[in-house]
Simulated assay, not measured.
Amino acid sequence: MDLSDRIVVLTGAGISADSGVPTFRDSGGIWAKYHYRDVATPEGFAANPNLLHEFYNLRRAGLPTVQPNPAHDALAQLAQAKREAGGCLTLVTQNVDDLHERGGSKSVWHMHGELTKARCTSCGTVREWADALSVTVSCPDCAERGTLRPHIVWFGEVPMLMEEIAEAVAEADLFVSIGTSGSVYPAAGFVGEAKSLGIPCMEINLEPSENAHLFDEAFYGPAAEQVPVFVGRLMSAVSR
């Protein structure tokens, strides 16, 4: 592996969990407290927008209370080194927080959307949004009231940037999955796509994922510990 090569990194809840961000599916996670149909579907938004806004307002307001961890920092450092060497690190995340950006990553593909943005269901405009959303808030662009929603991909909706991700995976020299359960599709299918093309695949996870058998190499433990080791090992091998 060389810094001029192309790496696709997929990150999931495990990398944010090391910063204290609650997971969704683990025991005691968010879905144990809320039913996903109420707060993560278009139908839930239509039926009770106040509850849905309250759910995401709490999560948006909580972002400043968590900080990037060494895994976020290490990936940003690797991306910078690859840019300088003429390579490419495509960072795809299932997470809707902004920890990768605050950790120094310049380009992050949020396939499930971003908590820090709002989208108007009337005019389609997407804006940076730090304040609370409610049914009384008007869209700054079209002035329609109550049409702003979190810029989040809900159940039943198509994840973002799927064509771009598929192209990046197909052209990669290495696919790395970090902190994912291997149970959420289409993201869980990326390793299979890479594998079918003969691309080496690596898993860094707290424990084996549901599709762990598809990876050629695996390292288990907290992402905040394992990712810096992986990046350090790669950088060291290149510098020899």
Rank of each mutant, 00 (worst) to 15 (best):
E210N: 01
G198R: 13
I178F: 13
A79F: 02
P200Q: 04
G29M: 03
A13W: 05
A172G: 11
E157S: 07
L174N: 06
T90W: 13
C201G: 08
L58A: 15
D141T: 02
V135H: 09
N69V: 08
Q226F: 00
E171V: 00
I204L: 14
P22V: 06
G221T: 02
S19Q: 03
D216M: 07
G113N: 12
Q77E: 15
D216E: 11
C88M: 05
L214Y: 03
I204E: 03
M162K: 03
T23L: 09
D173R: 01
Y34V: 08
L99H: 02
Q226D: 00
A47L: 13
L63I: 09
P159W: 14
D173V: 01
V184R: 13
T65D: 08
I165T: 13
G124P: 03
K33S: 14
P49K: 10
T41Y: 13
L161Q: 14
N48E: 14
L161E: 12
L91I: 04
L115M: 13
A46N: 09
A166Q: 14
V21I: 11
V8M: 08
Y220I: 06
F175I: 08
R59Y: 09
D5N: 11
T125G: 00
S107Q: 12
L89P: 09
V227E: 03
D131V: 03
A166G: 13
F45T: 01
E43W: 12
G198K: 13
N69A: 10
G12R: 11
F219A: 06
P208R: 02
K195M: 09
F190S: 05
S4M: 01
C120A: 05
T136C: 02
T65I: 01
D131K: 14
S4F: 00
K195F: 09
V126Y: 00
G156N: 14
V126E: 00
F175T: 07
R149L: 15
G44Q: 10
N95D: 06
A188Y: 08
S196Q: 15
V238Y: 09
S177G: 13
H110Y: 15
P68A: 11
A118G: 05
G103M: 06
A85R: 01
L234G: 00
P150H: 14
K195R: 15
